[in-house]
Write a protein that binds this DNA or RNA. Structure first.
Lengths: 195, 195
DNA sequence: GAACCTAACGGACAGCTGTCCGTTTAACAA
DNA sequence: TTGTTAAACGGACAGCTGTCCGTTAGGTTC
């Protein structure tokens, strides 16, 4: 979806891309499943152009919410500064859940983005980096079992994508994340196996 | 999707339903994402008829693989007879993963079926019953933390739906299920917090 | 400023899902 | 049998996604 760095976007392409994102943000905020064709039309571009910029819905949504994703990623480092690694990890999971549920459609997009074997759509995006950071800190501190990969982690919290953001998701998500956290702690070389 | 018991299917409807299932098994075995319209046509029924019997893809797949699902459910009780509850649970998870991955498209269908807040499509199906059975046995034996619901469990293993069945799924699934199992064990009143 | 080249464009198109509605026909009663 | 009724039928239709390909127009070079 992205250009190689050595061939920057042509000026008209750049304009189109930005107009699409602008319209998409508005439309997606109204309704998470706004038809892509409508977005293309409102942005004044053809179907072909649209799909060249964003080959599928996820690509679009990820880009629209890029700022939010960025923020989420940066939160990881901040949490690690002020808290014990395991607390940081657990709180970051909560933030993760919040972001996913708050922005309509973001959960779906993140889910599908990581789906089917590759977490390539995130990968190596800022989120993966954040996860790595947190896992490494915890492994070093001995607060989680050694050898957990970002892939393992994403699979473990995948249940989040099953939760309806319009429902009362907090308790379900909380229970899931607690369970995962305990799973991660099991086998840790450090102190207790429980939180 | 199902008739109420007091209004049995009309004979022609019954025939159609069975013809659809017959064709669907064949088609889905070839290609997991065989177009529903093609199945309808091969079965010699109209679109409308088709969608009245099976309102969406998942409904069809679940029914096609009903036998397999049934088997999976029954396995739970059998495992509990010959093994410690926690071993039974863990092994059942493996079977679960195997069934999901083996039958093309079944994973997708199970995933979507449980998706979005309700596990109504399984619910209260045989699978939910099997899960309940296993969880109860473990809770009673003190091998897992108390209070885990089938919903919790399904969310926890939801990562399975993210795994591509065509890939080398075994190690990834194994790691995921180990993690979940450890999470379940954490906080158990019984002996060790690890397996 | 003219000519060239290729990235980018746009819209037609194909394939899919799920809905709607007028028509048919099985089931049952008289 | 014949008549009645509502369940079931079938196919047209609408909406969506993603692809394809002939056309347009930026950027660049001379």
């Amino acid at each position: 979806m992205q250009q190689k760095k050595d061939t920057p976007l042509r000026s008209d392409a750049q304009r189109n891309r930005e107009r699409i994102l602008e319209v998409a943000l508005a439309e997606l905020t109204c309704s998470a499943d706004a038809p892509l064709s409508a977005i293309a039309k409102k942005a004044g571009v053809g179907q072909g152009t649209f799909y060249r910029h964003f080959p599928n819905r996820e690509a679009l949504v990820l880009e629209v919410y890029r700022y939010e994703v960025q923020q989420l990623a940066e939160t990881a480092a901040q949490l690690l500064e002020t808290r014990a690694p395991d607390r940081a990890l657990r709180e970051w999971m909560d933030r993760f859940a919040q972001y996913s549920m708050a922005k309509a459609g973001l959960a779906d997009a993140l889910g599908k983005a990581t789906a089917r074997g590759t977490l390539a759509a995130l990968g190596h995006g800022p989120v993966t980096a954040a996860i790595t950071l947190l896992l490494d800190a915890n492994e070093e501190a001995g607060t989680i079992r050694p050898g957990v990969t970002p892939d393992d982690f994403v699979l473990a919290i995948a249940g989040l994508w099953q939760i309806d953001p319009h429902s009362d998701w907090q308790p379900r998500a909380g229970r899931l994340l607690d369970l995962v956290m305990d799973g991660l702690r099991a086998g840790a070389p450090g102190a207790g196996a429980r939180g």
